[in-house]
Design a protein around this nucleic acid. Structure first.
Length: 461
DNA sequence: GAAGATGATTTGTC
DNA sequence: GACAAATCATCTTC
């Protein structure tokens, strides 16, 4: 009974005298209160403790238990013993508490929470799920034509969300009920054994931790369900959609008008993406695929190249005409350039005429002007009114279209580049290594004149 | 349904 | 990180 001796020691000057037999407890008779009979007091307290200990082991009927409980509660030694037991328990509890409390937040739980929030399963319903679906759909590259799949996805997601919240509520309810039950139990027991409020609090925390581990499982399975749903409905590969005809045309126009260097810059990609209602990465993919496939089978793409080149040539003619008209408006006489052109010379009624004129411009057959290379063409354009056209879009447009002009001319009129007899375009744009030649193209020659907002290839490639 | 076209992904290189 | 090349998975056309 070492423990009892310590308790006795802790009790110190507690007056043990005067206790009586109550509530059916066979307590020993008093031993006087001069403090000399230590053995007697030991025996006294030992008996009380023994009584207490045996109560838990005995099977008592309700009436008996009630009677004994009452006896213990009313015993005059009870407060003293209770405070000692509390003290001991507090001391031993501190070490346990130190190890158990202040758990850092579980990183896995945080990840699950974040994911559920991002997917719109947890958190506010508005926006969440549909926003995630919209983002995923946009990434899939079909922002407008996938409404059916989209709504289907949202419906399923909403279903998952509903199940998740129902289950979560159930768990929370069960947790609360269980916590209340345990708290009541502990409060009840705290009458007969030392249970501090802190201890009850700790117990509540333990219960909550147990329940949160169940919650984590729920969150995990919800995440898995969302992932499966997402991959089933929104996987870009599964739901590949061809780009719209208009988008493909825009991309092809750019590709063939920059055939010498079909590497759009970031700005160009962004602008193309905007025009085509697709993402920048889709533009990158498209150009990547196009370059490879063009290179692999140039013959097959020749017709397409001609088509787009002719198309762009018409636009170029318009741009040139506009530039010329503009120059004449601004500067009727151009003494520095030595270049004059009447309006009538640019009255083009058909694409055929435009092409003929453009061909003539390059071959010099019209006699209007003869240009040694496209860079000079642009420089001449710049000098038309004695000033630079740098600020205007015309320069940039003309520049990008010069590529096309030369291509269509080379394809349709047998134009040979005046620079050295090399055809500037496919298959001649590809170097011996199978890559596109770098920076010897008109783009690089004229690039300084480009406007800031112009769509132009990245000459660094 | 087969074949080709096409957008996306993966892998390796620079 | 951008790109080439190979490959996958789906779409379109016949």
């Amino acid at each position: 009974m070492d423990e009892q001796a310590r308790i006795l020691q802790a009790l110190g000057g507690v007056n043990l005298a005067g206790h009586s037999v109550q509530g059916g407890m066979a307590l020993p008779p008093p031993h006087g209160h001069d403090g000399s009979d230590v053995d007697g007091r030991k025996q006294d307290i030992g008996d009380i403790l023994h009584q207490i200990m045996t109560i838990t082991d005995q099977s008592l009927d309700e009436a008996q238990a009630k009677h004994r409980k009452h006896g213990l509660n009313c015993h005059r030694m009870k407060p003293a013993l209770f405070s000692v037991l509390c003290e001991i328990k507090e001391k031993t509890g501190l070490s346990i508490r130190g190890a158990q409390e202040e758990d850092p937040p579980d990183p896995q739980l945080m990840r699950l929470d974040n994911m559920l929030l991002a997917e719109g399963v947890s958190g506010p319903e508005k926006g969440g799920g549909s926003a995630a679906a919209a983002a995923a759909a946009a990434a899939a590259g079909s922002p407008t034509d996938n409404s059916i799949e989209h709504s289907d996805y949202r419906a399923k997601l909403s279903q998952i969300r509903q199940i998740y919240h129902t289950e979560l509520e159930k768990y929370e309810q069960a947790c609360n009920e269980f916590t209340t039950h345990v708290m009541n139990l502990l409060r009840e027991q705290s009458r007969t054994r030392p249970i501090s409020p802190k201890e009850i609090e700790r117990m509540v925390n333990i219960i909550h931790r147990k329940f949160s581990s169940i919650q984590m499982q729920l969150k995990q399975s919800t995440c898995e369900a969302v992932m499966i749903l997402r991959s089933r409905f929104l996987d870009a590969r599964r739901k590949r959609r061809n780009f719209s005809k208009q988008a493909t045309e825009i991309l092809n126009e750019y590709f063939y008008s920059h055939l010498s260097n079909p590497y759009p810059s970031e700005e160009a990609k962004e602008e193309l993406a905007k025009k085509c209602s697709i993402t920048v990465s889709q533009v990158s993919n498209w150009f990547g695929n196009k370059r490879i496939r063009y290179k692999k089978n140039i013959g097959k793409f020749q017709e397409e190249a001609n088509l787009y080149a002719a198309k762009t040539a018409v636009t170029a003619a318009h741009a040139v005409a506009a530039a010329v008209q503009n120059s004449q408006t601004n500067s009727p006489t151009t003494p520095n350039s030595g270049f004059q052109m009447k309006d009538e010379e640019f009255q083009l009624d058909s694409a055929e005429n435009k092409n003929t004129l453009l061909t003539n411009m390059f071959t010099g057959s019209s006699g209007s002007f003869n240009l040694p290379n496209s860079g000079d063409l642009f420089m001449s354009m710049q000098n038309l009114n004695g000033d630079s056209y740098q600020g205007a879009q015309v320069g940039a447009n003309v520049h990008s279209q010069v590529d096309t002009l030369r291509h269509v001319i080379s394809q349709t009129a047998g134009y040979n580049d005046a620079l050295g007899g090399n055809l500037m375009y496919s298959p001649h744009s590809l170097n011996g290594n199978g890559g596109w030649q770098a920076a010897t193209t008109p783009s690089s020659v004229i690039s300084p004149a480009e406007g800031p907002g112009s769509v132009h290839s990245d000459t660094s490639n």
